[in-house]
Design a protein around this nucleic acid. Sequence first.
DNA 1: GCCAACGTTGGC
DNA 2: GCCAACGTTGGC
Length: 158
Amino acid sequence: MRYWLMKSEPSDCSIDDLAAMPNQTVAWYGVRNYQARNFMRDMMKVGDLAFFYHSSCPRPGIAGIVCVASPPYPDATQFDEKSRFFDPKSSQEEPRWHNVDVRLVEKTPFVDLATLKEQETLAGMRVLQKANRLSITPVDAEEWRTITTRLMAPKKQP
DNA sequence: GCCAACGTTGGC
DNA sequence: GCCAACGTTGGC
């Protein structure tokens, strides 16, 4: 199984929004980047775990853990003319974009971006690289362990 | 709101 | 197939 980090703008879907969803599950629609799509379409397996990351917000960082809850399937919004994710170049016969469903595993103590950057062992994380814009990135087992065991231990909030 | 970095597009 | 222009991302 693999580990991932998936970005979401909390104004769009926050960890609390996810917690309020039926089955605490949401379709990860709207990805329009081929690399990120390929991760979902070709690499993700049901049961993979991912950090749920809040981006483009006052306090970016990891807000929880989710799991991959479905195989990949065509992203419905690419066919919807009213959606901001509508893609006129896609077709039902040959859908261009795919997504998986994601289910909340747990809301964790918040690990903000500044804290992630402080960890020497995390210096190689994709999401910490300069100008990284990929909304889905692989996380290796060592990085996962560092974050979950060292940074997510309950502690007082700053 | 700024800006750097990057992906995509489209003319040639 | 190159590459300039453009749009988007995302931290600050």
